[in-house]
Design a protein around this nucleic acid. Structure first.
Lengths: 156, 156
DNA sequence: TGAAATTGGTTGACGTATCAACTGTTTTGC
DNA sequence: GCAAAACAGTTGATACGTCAACCAATTTCA
């Protein structure tokens, strides 16, 4: 890894504030999409992600959602209850493993997703406007690798 | 480890959505760095970012930090107060514009940054291990463009 | 088989983020 | 030069995220 031509130094410079920039972009993206969701519905960003996942995946469980969304299971538990109360999703006990419950999106939830999705996709399109496919692929690839690398919690 | 059934496969397709992936990576990175900060100090992630910025920028103001961190000014106000109380930074009134106050990192704050920074940089290095310089440059460039694009709040 | 460990989910406590209202200060524009 | 607008920062209400304790069901393995 050590490189006499200063590549490492340059890389160090590049990566300084990398997570900082990522956090910044993330915050702005969240603020933007929350704003849109507020205009077009009365659901929050997390609600949206849960509904979107349930719509795409079909039946699933809380712990699976928790892993996918990389979200606290306690918080998710409360969010799920809210969605059930609002009749956007349903929850029934799993007959095989009675610890878990099977979540399914309801007709109303599906309607909501289908109403909002085009607008979200349009925003998505605007975000990546002017970015080439190749650049986007590299971006997503690097992001995925960072995602994986951020799993280790070994002391440094 | 969870075995990849059909649901996971569909979910993998769904997570190809960029903001979703970005949020996920962001959450994992935050959890990881907060964990490290807890081990090596008693400051939070936001505290760290403020100190790091102040150390790198020299004197600045709250509103400038708010813009840079893309963070709520109210919350920042409370965080700043905490840092001042702990004598990690100082705050004095701007003689030219008495609305604002000038923030500066204190010796103790600087020491803290210098103590933690090497460990943060080491983690940073681990994160980007195996990613070429060119890929990194593209990644950061795309990130910057997404950051800019996420500013618009025009109705879709 | 049965004790110990793991897993799915709930709840409470507490810190943090967000939104809005508010004070005081400076700038803008007629 | 003055009223209106914009700006810097503070505070309060409330929603959200995080951590840890906990219960019940299931799996592990000596």
């Amino acid at each position: 890894m050590s490189n006499p031509d200063g590549n490492e130094r340059v890389a160090a410079h590049l990566t300084s504030f990398m997570t900082f920039r990522l956090a910044r972009a993330h915050n702005k993206l969240n603020a933007q999409i929350s704003h849109y969701l507020k205009i077009y519905s009365d659901i929050t960003l997390v609600d949206w992600r849960v509904l979107r996942l349930l719509e795409a995946m079909g039946d699933t469980t809380m712990s699976q959602l928790s892993r996918l969304l990389q979200m606290d299971k306690g918080q998710l538990s409360r969010k799920i209850r809210g969605l059930v109360v609002r009749k956007l999703i349903t929850s029934r006990m799993d007959m095989v493993d009675s610890r878990q419950q099977i979540l399914r999106i309801d007709a109303a939830g599906r309607d909501l997703v289908r109403h909002i999705l085009p607008k979200v996709q349009e925003r998505q399109r605007m975000l990546v406007e002017g970015i080439s496919r190749q650049e986007l692929e590299i971006f997503l690839d690097v992001l995925a690798r960072i995602d994986i690398a951020s799993e280790t919690r070994d002391p440094l």
